[in-house]
Amino acid sequence: MIRNLIFDLGDVIIPIDLTAPIRNFAIMADVSEEEVRALWKQHDFINHYETGLIDDSAFRVHVRQLLKNDAWADEVIDTAWNTVLLDLPVERIERIKELKKEYRLFLLSNTSPIHIRRVNQVLAGMGQPTLEELFERVFYSYDVQLAKPSPAIYNHVLAEVGINAEETAFFDDNAANITAAKALGIQAVHVQPPKTILDYLQDM
């Protein structure tokens, strides 16, 4: 019997476009998208940011240095970084609120503080609860300094909230994350377009 539901955030709750920040930074810096992508990969600072090894300020410093523009204000960088986030379908939030009556709900996301602040701003603008209010517990990669698909992050969540893997369903759009969760006995569900999370929650 499933008693617990763990949700990924990007492309599960909120649609995302992973190419948008690269595209916007390339336009701002007047360089090619390929150059920006290569710099991201070479310096790996985004992974460091999302696992809490560097903070917001250090992240912005890296962006300014790599793209050679010290004049960009924090807000300019944050806005470009947040273009990854697309419109949030309110019906997904409403469905999650309904599920709270029957299940323990958790959020597990590889993400950054800038993104989480923006998602919560969007939710507030919609008259909806924040992520921290919507779920019993939220687990952000930058807080726990672990990231999916490492088995350690799943074990951390299970231990922290005292739940059993076999009684837990996990919804994620990334195949590697699904494989890792299944290996631990979690009932992992791969959310794939054209279906949305609502399709996978119909029978719950």
Rank of each mutant, 00 (worst) to 15 (best):
R23V: 10
D199R: 02
N155A: 05
D87F: 10
E34M: 12
V31T: 15
E94K: 12
D173M: 11
V189I: 11
K195M: 03
L146C: 11
T19K: 15
L9V: 08
N69L: 12
E50P: 03
W81M: 08
R104V: 05
K195L: 07
E91N: 15
T51S: 03
L5T: 05
P129I: 03
Q65S: 12
D17V: 05
V157P: 03
E35R: 06
S57P: 05
D87L: 11
I178W: 02
V161C: 02
D70N: 14
L134P: 09
P151F: 01
D87Q: 15
I114P: 14
R64D: 12
A183T: 05
L53Y: 08
R117G: 14
I114K: 14
L53C: 12
N47M: 10
K148N: 01
Y142K: 13
H156R: 11
F7Y: 12
E136S: 13
D8P: 07
V84H: 07
L158V: 02
A159R: 09
L9S: 11
S109M: 06
L184R: 07
Y200E: 01
V138F: 06
A73V: 08
T111A: 03
L134I: 13
A71Q: 12
E94W: 10
A26V: 15
V189H: 02
A176E: 03
Q121W: 09
G10I: 14
L86W: 08
D30F: 06
A38Q: 09
Q202L: 14
E33K: 09
A124P: 04
I22K: 11
A180E: 02
A80P: 05
T79L: 06
D55E: 00
N110S: 04
A181K: 01
N177D: 03
L5W: 04
K100Y: 08
A29P: 04
K100P: 03
A181H: 07
I77Y: 10
V157F: 03
E166D: 10
D172N: 02
S109K: 05
R23Y: 12
I14Q: 09
I6R: 00
A169G: 03
I93Y: 07
L53G: 10
L123N: 12
A124E: 15
V76W: 14
V157E: 02
V36S: 13
V138N: 08
E166V: 04
